[in-house]
Simulated assay, not measured.
Amino acid sequence: MPVSLFTNANIPETIQQATAPVFFLAGIGAFMNVIAGRLARVVDRARLLEPQVPDATGDERLRLIGELRVLEKRMSLAARAIYLCTACGLTVCLLIIMMFAEELIRFDLSRYVAVMFVIAVLLLASGMVLFLRETRIAVAALHVRQELIDLGALPE
């Protein structure tokens, strides 16, 4: 009978424990979906404005260029947030592999698993900070012209 490293492993229990971080992955995926949606809207807005710049003059040209600069900053932040969240997801995948391997080969990887978890959380937190910055820039850049507000004002 051949010798196996896996003879003492309880495979179903190992799978259950090693896949617990899958819920973490699901949350990361949902968060990335939100960021990707915002990025797509920013890209669409930039594509709409870019062709208008060559024909615009004066204040309108300055307004368009200013808005494009804000959109560029937002795209950069969203793309970096997606990068960090993707790195977080990959780290969680490695964490799952390590947890499974630890049980199967009976080698203590608990310190490495703990470090990987901390790294994953730090990557996710960094992505969330960039997302927060992107949303704050979006809100700060939103300007409704006063004459439009005055047109819609109701008598008091």
Score class of each variant (00 low, 15 high):
116 M>D: 01
87 A>V: 12
141 A>V: 03
154 L>G: 06
123 L>I: 03
67 E>G: 02
144 V>P: 02
107 F>L: 12
123 L>V: 02
6 F>Y: 13
147 E>I: 10
85 C>S: 14
54 P>I: 13
95 L>V: 06
43 V>N: 05
36 A>T: 05
96 I>H: 00
27 G>R: 11
35 I>Y: 00
95 L>N: 05
99 M>L: 11
123 L>D: 01
104 L>T: 05
36 A>N: 05
39 L>G: 00
96 I>D: 00
56 A>I: 14
97 I>C: 09
151 L>F: 15
1 M>S: 12
134 E>C: 07
112 Y>V: 03
102 E>M: 08
27 G>I: 07
133 R>K: 13
107 F>A: 09
149 I>T: 15
7 T>V: 09
153 A>D: 12
113 V>F: 02
3 V>E: 06
140 A>V: 04
43 V>D: 04
131 F>A: 08
150 D>W: 04
10 N>K: 09
145 R>P: 05
79 A>R: 10
57 T>W: 07
5 L>I: 11
105 I>D: 07
24 F>R: 01
18 A>Y: 00
42 V>M: 00
30 A>T: 11
86 T>I: 12
75 M>C: 15
57 T>V: 15
111 R>C: 02
57 T>F: 09
119 I>G: 01
12 P>Y: 03
107 F>D: 09
98 M>H: 08
25 L>Q: 13
78 A>R: 02
139 V>Q: 10
73 K>S: 10
40 A>S: 08
66 G>C: 05
153 A>P: 07
106 R>S: 15
95 L>D: 02
146 Q>E: 15
